[in-house]
Amino acid sequence: MNAERTAPRPLLYASSLVALLLSVLPLPQWLAWIRPDFLLLVVVWFALMAPRAGGLLFAFLAGLALDAFRGVVLGQHALAFVVVAYLVHRFHLRMRMFTLFQQSLFVLALLWLYQFLLFWIDGVTGHPVTDWMRWLPVLTGAMLWPVLAGFMGRFLSRA
């Protein structure tokens, strides 16, 4: 009887807080370049596994928090987060049927879309970053996905 499992709400708060702190943790330069978008991965995970608790509003607020932390134009990450969370919601039943590898590929596409939105907004607001290295977190994020999904899955409680 493991048909029904729930994602506890404390997990939502704890994991998003840790992800937010990780996203501004001082790292050596080369690590900072490949730093995955931890907070977005957490948002994707909740949109996938607990679409009600980690809804679009959660994605929006998480994005806004990241905007405030990074000091960029307010709403930039919020918009990108909402778009990604919407896609995950839309396909969450299908995504759950994927193998971890397929999920990672899907996450790769989502992260790419996310970076593209940020890239585009950066350009519109007059701070274009054309460095190719800004796309590195897409790869590392997708590689991190199986680890994160496996780790967070352990906290799903049985109902």
């Binding site: 679009l56 509003l57 994005g63 709403g75 909402v82 919407y86 919601h89 969450h92």
Partner: peptide, 24 residues
């Protein structure tokens, strides 16, 4: 059911997206 309030999902996404764009 597994996807609650699925029928308003697109609408909510559009509203939140517009709020974000407005903020920007």
């Amino acid at each position: 059911y597994a996807a609650p309030r699925a029928h308003t999902l697109g609408l909510r996404a559009i509203v939140l997206g517009l709020v974000a764009i407005g903020l920007m």
